[in-house]
Design a protein around this nucleic acid. Structure first.
Length: 395
DNA sequence: TCTGGGGTCCTAGGACCC
DNA sequence: TCTGGGGTCCTAGGACCC
């Protein structure tokens, strides 16, 4: 039988994950904290960083909102992980140092490490500030003449080169997983953290991946995990042995079919080196919940400020958007969104504010408010779209 | 212990048009 | 008066990821 698709040549896909990224950047600045439990997070004012006496704020007695963004491996050993509320973390590790997040610094180091990788292998897909996928396929093929006979060994050599380049450019360490696809590489990069290079060959999926918990699959979150548990499925191998029709019955056509492929380690998604942004947003959680009537002036001021920040982001990136969205989270964590699509894309703060104000009218404000957010979607590049309009006029 | 901020993608219903 | 089916857009919510 002839395949419907031309034979696809073997792919060598890497996932690179910076080790405890934010915390590690902070340790470059404060080397005296190396080896100690350190967490990054909290609100700007609450987390003070280095005090005047040269000492550091600790989690002890922390009060207020906020979660941990990153913790060092020493802090993780105390049970303190990212996403955890700072109040809870303070109970587990009162002596851990608490540093405020400095996103400008993290973005700077992010650019540095990505540039260092691209100088070696240019096929890089951005996955946020501290991780990327890299398509090694061409590089592995190119090294066939001078490298080891085993392509996986050559891929490993490229990964070691990249680790060295990242360390030279930033002083930071990273972990790399190499497999035939993104899904497996994401799993592989976790296997030898920090600082490891891990390879999973196709014939090793059963022995290495199948014993792992289903939650290790990127795309199976807390909800799906809980449901799988209720269905008696704990490991990826158990999931892989269920038939597709049954999974589709349980999880819907799209998600069920995806799960079936994922559990078998199948993933054909390409490494995408650039994609258009879909939306731009700003949101803020208040120090204390605000009352829609009593705190109206303050809310209005924050609301307008968010619109101005979104407008600034749009302008800087060169986009305008047609769909303006509002997000409100109440004190009971119930969250509502409203959006409004305009006839033409807008970019300026006043137009965004006006549309978001219309959205606000459609929400009944009968509780205190915890979070306010503004989003602009259906983006286009104003310069390009006006050119398109101008050309349409001549049609 | 009440749970940040920036995103993407999916679903589902209703409007509207052909 | 009752009946279609398909396609696209809009809106709201939710799962998930870093």
């Amino acid at each position: 039988m002839e395949s419907a698709h031309p034979a696809r040549s073997a792919r060598y896909i890497a996932h690179l994950d910076m080790d405890a990224f934010y915390a590690s950047v902070e340790l470059l600045r404060y080397p005296q904290l190396r080896g100690k439990p350190v967490v990054v997070g909290g609100r700007r004012r609450a987390a003070r960083g280095e005090a005047e006496d040269g000492g550091f704020a600790t989690l002890r007695g922390y009060s207020g909102r906020g979660v941990i963004t990153t913790s060092t491996y020493e802090a993780r050993a105390l049970g303190v992980f990212s996403g955890m509320g700072l109040m809870k973390a303070a109970k587990l590790a009162p002596d851990a140092v608490l540093l405020p997040a400095d996103f400008e610094a993290y973005r700077r180091y992010s650019r540095l490490f990505k540039d260092a990788v691209r100088a070696i292998v240019p096929q890089v897909e951005d996955r946020g500030i501290d991780e990327i996928y890299i398509d090694f396929s061409e590089a592995v093929a190119a090294s066939a003449a001078e490298g080891a006979p085993d392509p996986w060994a050559r891929a490993r050599a490229i990964a070691l080169d990249i680790q060295r380049a990242v360390r030279e450019a930033t002083g930071l360490s990273c972990s790399i997983g190499i497999t035939p696809n993104k899904l497996l590489s994401k799993i592989a990069s976790e296997l030898n953290k920090p600082g490891g290079v891990s390879v999973i060959r196709p014939d090793e999926v059963r022995s290495i991946v199948w014993p792992m918990a289903v939650r290790k699959i990127n795309g199976i979150g807390p909800k799906a995990n809980a449901k799988l548990e209720r269905l008696g499925l704990r490991t990826i191998g158990e999931l892989a042995q269920k038939d597709e029709a049954w999974l589709v019955e349980q999880f819907g056509r799209s998600y069920g079919a995806w799960m079936h492929r994922a559990a078998r380690g199948e993933d054909e998604r390409p490494v995408v080196t650039w994609s258009e942004p879909k939306s731009v947003s700003r949101e803020t959680t208040f120090e204390d919940d605000l009352h829609p009537v009593r705190d109206k002036a303050r809310l209005t001021q924050i609301f307008t400020g968010l619109c101005e920040r979104v407008a600034g982001d749009l302008k800087r990136k060169g986009y305008a958007g047609r769909t303006i969205g509002l997000k409100i989270r109440f004190d009971n964590f119930h969250t509502v969104t409203r959006d409004l699509t305009l006839d033409a894309p807008v970019q300026d703060a006043r137009a965004i504010r006006r549309a978001a104000g219309e959205c606000l009218k459609r929400v009944s404000l009968d509780r205190r408010i915890r979070l306010l957010g503004v989003r602009v979607g259906a983006l286009s590049r104003p310069d390009i779209s006006s050119e398109v309009h101008a050309m349409a006029l001549f049609d």
